[in-house]
Design a protein around this nucleic acid. Structure first.
Lengths: 233, 233
DNA sequence: TTTTAGTATCAAGATTTCGTAAGGATAAGA
DNA sequence: TCTTATCCTTACGAAATCTTGATACTAAAA
């Protein structure tokens, strides 16, 4: 299940408090997965790969600090800790073990929300998340780096060539109409110049295809537009 | 002192408190740059490119919230806010404007240290993060010490040259657009002067490349921007 | 087969973008 | 004051890129 909204994992043993948080978070558009033990939490992080973890330190089955330490051996998931304990040593211990934030109970739900968003915003630029890579056969397109490879050889594309290819990559497997391509690459005032497309598609094929006359990736959909083949054949 | 230590910028108008924090932070091995006004802070972020900002909200010359908003238009520097105000709205406002963390006075120095480290740790994993030393081939760049080497020979760069190179280092492997570079190095009012880039890129190449006409590190992405090559070839 | 609409290719000229050099302005330090 | 370093400005040739027009190809319809 892929969707725009982030999935938050909540590890909290008090059912009432769990329910309360659940409602608050969902009202902000987050998906929430709630578990009651550290064990279940560790498993959920591995299996569900949530975007962020909200961890109550007081757990029945294991020490909250230990949950953090164990997680950090193999995961970089953002962690916000909740705790009734406000001693300096508790806070520094949790943070030093690898937590990202620490809130003492009682806390304002609005502040929790803002802190979650702040952390997600910070983490949104992680390499894994930001690096959009499309690959089919020999062809590899790294959108965020603006780099294109055929097998391991890097291909240099001009801005128009790259923007055109991007638009096809973003809709890989689907036809993109002439109008759509022209509008994205040249702007709304050039939607009539479908001639440009032929020129640049030819150039792209020349650079990316082994046999430009019989393209494997950049396919023509006569009368409609072009399509980037996403399946090997 | 260890070379890779991060530079922290402290914006705090109370001299006594500034002194106190300064001592605390330095005792932890951080380099500290302290200023007393929002204006000076904004300039320092641009010119010194610190790894993290500690911002007291109560400033004499401008609203602390505005400092955050203005910074976030062109900088992703991690921000920890200090404030005597503990109202929910103050906190959420600061975070929603783009701060990463918020501490209410009085706070424990140990907690501040742990929170700084937590944030730096998080940010170190991002592209454009607080990676301290960048190296590829013969070229080595130490961001916080502001030193650059080609093989073992140290190269002297002017402030603009260094800031330009920093910006490329922070996004090593990614294209950085003309606009982005101009905004970071010269400020938002100079985004049109793309010829500055050509001049200074030429100077950088002259200083850093063995064959400036055929650059190995400082690559041009025609029509888009420049890219620092992150892989040897 | 001929026609036709849509597509592909080629190459030259126009335009934009880049690299380089040289000189003037400014400010800091000797 | 003179020197030095840095930054900005101007100018121009070179390179890359885009646009344009002419021409050839292909497949489906008449």
């Amino acid at each position: 299940m892929k969707s725009g909204n982030p999935l938050l994992l909540l590890i909290e043993d008090d059912p009432q408090f769990q329910m309360l948080l659940n409602t608050t978070l969902q009202s902000q558009g987050f998906y929430v997965l709630a578990v009651g033990t550290g064990q279940a939490g560790l498993i959920a992080v591995r299996n569900q790969q949530p975007s962020l973890l909200i961890l109550d330190l007081g757990l029945p089955d294991m020490d909250g600090q230990e949950v953090i330490s164990r997680l950090r051996k193999w995961s970089e998931i953002p962690i916000i800790v909740l705790s009734a304990r406000d001693q300096e040593t508790d806070i520094t211990l949790a943070l030093d073990h690898g937590a990202d934030d620490y809130l003492t109970k009682p806390f304002s739900p609005a502040v929790l929300i803002s802190r979650i968003k702040a952390l997600l915003r910070r983490v949104a630029k992680l390499p894994g998340g930001a690096l959009e890579v499309f690959q089919v056969g020999e062809l590899k397109v790294e959108l965020t780096r603006r780099r294109v490879f055929v097998s391991i050889k890097e291909i240099s594309l001009t801005p128009i060539e790259f923007n055109l290819l991007s638009e096809l990559v973003r809709h890989a497997g689907f036809v993109v109409t002439h109008r759509q391509l022209l509008e994205k690459v040249w702007g709304a005032s050039h939607v009539e110049h479908s001639h440009y497309l032929r020129i640049y598609m030819a150039q792209l094929r020349h650079k990316l295809e082994s046999d430009p006359a019989r393209p494997r990736y950049l396919l023509t959909e006569a009368g409609v537009g072009y399509r980037l083949n996403e399946a090997e054949n």
